[in-house]
Amino acid sequence: MATIPAVYGLSTDDARALLAQAGFTVESVSYEYSSEVAAGVAIGTDPAEGWSFPGDASVALIASKGPNPVNGYVPEVPTDSYDQAAAVLAAAGYLPGYVEQESATVAAGLVIAIRPAAGTPLNPGGTVDVFVSVGVPYIPPEPTGPATPRFE
């Protein structure tokens, strides 16, 4: 009986050698994206490590392609309302965030901006904050006349 050894973290050449030493033939090498394992480094096997087989058996080696490149861009969104902007973002695969912000130039309830900005590379599943106006900031009036003591 031969047991498939752990190959995680080995170079593909070292993983092949270890598998051959354990009595396995590497039938194929497939590649997957991994943000945790550098390109060209083994992630595992199929069947997985620990399985035992009698005689000569073949396994598939799984190696890393490195991190997944960005495969999306933040879309343009309507500025009419948060709901409309959030719907566009959600349809594109992004998670819309909600941030209230005072604005003297954008009416309350309208979208001021999104961050990251439209056109920014971002993988689907990322968060895009939608900044929504709460209107003009409240500025208390200036006091008029002399101050009068409250208690005498």
Rank of each mutant, 00 (worst) to 15 (best):
A17C: 06
A117G: 09
I114Y: 02
S81G: 04
E102W: 07
A87T: 01
I139T: 14
I4M: 01
I112N: 10
S103M: 05
A87V: 00
Q101Y: 06
L110M: 01
V128C: 12
N123W: 00
P5D: 10
G93S: 00
D13M: 05
A117R: 09
I62Q: 00
Y8A: 11
G126D: 03
V26K: 09
A20K: 12
L18C: 02
G66H: 04
G119F: 03
G145K: 08
E76R: 11
R150A: 15
P141A: 13
P96A: 09
V29N: 08
Y98C: 01
Q101E: 12
D46L: 14
A22V: 07
G9N: 10
P121N: 03
Y31H: 08
S35C: 07
T105D: 13
G119N: 02
E100L: 05
A2E: 05
G145H: 04
A147G: 15
P140E: 14
Y138T: 13
E32D: 06
V77P: 00
G97E: 02
Y82W: 14
Y73D: 07
S11H: 09
P5Y: 06
D80C: 02
T3M: 06
G119P: 02
V41Q: 13
G135E: 04
A107Q: 12
A42H: 01
A22G: 11
P67G: 11
Y33N: 02
R115F: 13
G109H: 03
A48W: 07
L19F: 01
Y98S: 04
V132D: 10
G125K: 00
S103I: 07
D13A: 12
E32C: 02
S11W: 07
V111M: 06
G55D: 07
S11N: 11
A90E: 04
P69R: 03
G97F: 08
T79M: 02
A92G: 03
G109F: 08
G72L: 01
P5L: 09
V128S: 13
P67Q: 11
A39E: 11
E49I: 04
E102G: 04
Y8M: 06
G125C: 00
I139F: 12
A2P: 06
A87N: 01
A117M: 06
E27H: 10
S103V: 03
P96S: 03
D80V: 09
F24Q: 14
T105Q: 12
F53P: 10
A86C: 13
E49D: 15
A85C: 05
P116I: 06
A118F: 12
R150C: 11
E32L: 11
S52H: 12
S52Q: 13
V130W: 13
A42C: 00
Y138E: 13
A60N: 15
Y33F: 10
T127S: 08
V132Q: 08
G55W: 05
N123D: 05
P78M: 07
W51A: 15
A63G: 02
G55E: 06
P146R: 13
N123C: 00
S34Y: 02
V106P: 01
P67D: 12
F24Y: 15
I62K: 01
G119E: 04
S34H: 05
L89S: 10
E27T: 12
S133V: 07
G44S: 07
A113T: 05
P78Y: 04
D13P: 02
S81K: 03
D80H: 02
Y98R: 10
